[in-house]
Design a protein around this nucleic acid. Structure first.
Length: 219
DNA sequence: GCGACAG
DNA sequence: ATCTTGTCGC
C-alpha cells in the first residue's frame, strides 16, 4: 500500500511534541470501520545495540486468524527511546513494512498504547492517523492511568482512567495471567476495540496478530 | 525535589 | 527493546 508523507520525522522531543499536538485533533474515537476481513499486527525489534530497527507486519484473515501476508523492513534507528515519544522511534520503519504489503488491512493492532498517553497520542494513534486505517493499541504494561482490581477470568476488563477520564481498558485475555492495556488508536470506539482484541486472542496472552509480528520482527 | 516511565 | 534454557506449576 502507498502511504503519504504527512510530516518530516523530528530529531528531538520538542519537535516531536509539536507534531503530536498538531495531529492529535485528527484522532477519531468513534467506529469508522467496515466489515473486518483482514487484521494486521505490527511490531519492531532492534539489532546492533539498537542501531538497526526491524519492523514486521503480519496480515491475518478475520475471524479465522490465518496468516495471509507478511513483510519485513529494516533501517537505521533515528530516534531514541523516550517515554511519550515511542512512535517517533518505531513508526518510520513500520511504514516501510506496510508499504510492502498488498493486502490493505481493515484494522491494525499495535504493540503499545493508543490514546492512553500523556497527550492522548500514543503509537497506535500516530500510525492510525498517518495511514487512515483503524488502529488499536495493545500494550503489555501500563504507561499512564489507574484502574480497579481485575477479576482473574478471561474476558473481564476494567476501565483505565487518567484524572477521571476513561482512556482505555485493562483487559484479561487469559485467566490468571497478567492483563493487557487496550486503548483506541484511530477510527474505533473503546468497546469495539476491546471486542476485537479478545476476538484476535486465542490461546495466549497477546493477540495472534502481534504474536506473529513479534516472531517475524525478531528473527 | 522525588518517583514513574509504552518499547 | 535486549542479554537467555530449562524448569516449576496449573
Amino acid at each position: 500500500m502507498e502511504i503519504q508523507q504527512r510530516h518530516p520525522w523530528p530529531v528531538n522531543s520538542e519537535e516531536a511534541k509539536a507534531i503530536q499536538q498538531q495531529l492529535q485533533p485528527e484522532v477519531i474515537s468513534e467506529d469508522q470501520l467496515g466489515e473486518v476481513q483482514y487484521v494486521a499486527g505490527v511490531d519492531v525489534g532492534f539489532e546492533e545495540d539498537g542501531a538497526i530497527s526491524q519492523a514486521a507486519v503480519a496480515v491475518l484473515s478475520f475471524p479465522d486468524l490465518q496468516l495471509r501476508e507478511n513483510a519485513i523492513a529494516r533501517r537505521p534507528t533515528t530516534f531514541p527511546y523516550v517515554p511519550g515519544f515511542l512512535s517517533f522511534r518505531e513508526v518510520p520503519v513500520v511504514l516501510d513494512a506496510l508499504e510492502k504489503i498488498s493486502i490493505i488491512p481493515d484494522l491494525i493492532l499495535c504493540d503499545g498504547q493508543g490514546i492512553a498517553h500523556p497527550r492522548r497520542f500514543g503509537l497506535a494513534c500516530h500510525l492510525g492517523v498517518l495511514t487512515d486505517i483503524p488502529t488499536i493499541g495493545v500494550a503489555k504494561s501500563r504507561f499512564i492511568g489507574d484502574h480497579e482490581q481485575l477479576p482473574e477470568n478471561k474476558g473481564n476488563w476494567q476501565p483505565l482512567r487518567d484524572d477521571g477520564e476513561i482512556i482505555g481498558a485493562v483487559v484479561r485475555t487469559r485467566t490468571g495471567v497478567k492483563p493487557v492495556y487496550v486503548s483506541i488508536g484511530h477510527r474505533i470506539s473503546l468497546p469495539t476495540a476491546i471486542d476485537y482484541v479478545l476476538r484476535c486472542t486465542s490461546r495466549y496472552r497477546l493477540p495472534e496478530t502481534t504474536r506473529w509480528a513479534d516472531q517475524l520482527a525478531s528473527k
